[in-house]
């Protein structure tokens, strides 16, 4: 179930809109391969989930129409407007909308963190010895053999 050209365009527009150029952790154009992540997700999922992913793309891409009453698709909105709308969908009162937007957010982060540069900027792998001494202090430890220190 390959995505069409316009679905691919929508995928990039949606997933790149989770971040903005003004934010602290930015993702440069081409740094994250959102279409690849969506295709891997779709290829590895069973039919119902594959359909769900495609529905998610359509629901979010057409959100300007059904959520804002504008005859536009998401990729036709200005960048800030896309991000704002997506943030609204993530908190939407309807479980279906919220769930579909969250599925796309997870797919976006799967693509983003595949990039070593983006992952490095997230700080997740910052060296262990930079950790605060207070979190590394030895605590009394309760084990099946009793209390150790």
């Amino acid at each position: 179930m390959a995505f069409t050209d316009f679905e691919r365009r929508w995928i990039v527009a949606i997933m790149s809109a989770f971040t903005t150029p003004e934010g602290e952790l930015t993702v440069a154009d081409g740094e994250a391969d959102y279409v690849y992540a969506a295709e891997v997700m779709a290829a590895g999922s069973r039919l119902k989930a594959r359909v769900g992913l495609r529905v998610a793309v359509w629901v979010v891409a057409l959100a300007p129409a059904w959520a804002l009453g504008r005859a536009q698709t998401l990729d036709e909105l200005p960048a800030a407007g896309r991000t704002e709308l997506i943030a609204r969908l993530l908190d939407h009162r309807a479980y279906l909308v919220r769930g579909l937007a969250t599925l796309l957010k997870l797919t976006a982060t799967l693509a983003m963190m595949r990039s070593p540069a983006v992952r490095a900027r997230s700080g997740y792998d910052r060296a262990a010895d930079a950790r605060s001494p207070s979190t590394r202090r030895a605590l009394p430890l309760v084990t099946s053999q009793g209390v150790m220190t």
């Binding site: 989770f18 903005t20 934010g23 602290e24 952790l25 930015t26 991000t83 943030a87 957010k105």
Partner: peptide, 10 residues
């Protein structure tokens, strides 16, 4: 999503 999310993400 957006700047607040990106700040936490960093």
């Amino acid at each position: 999503a957006g700047p607040a999310w990106q700040e936490r993400l960093a």
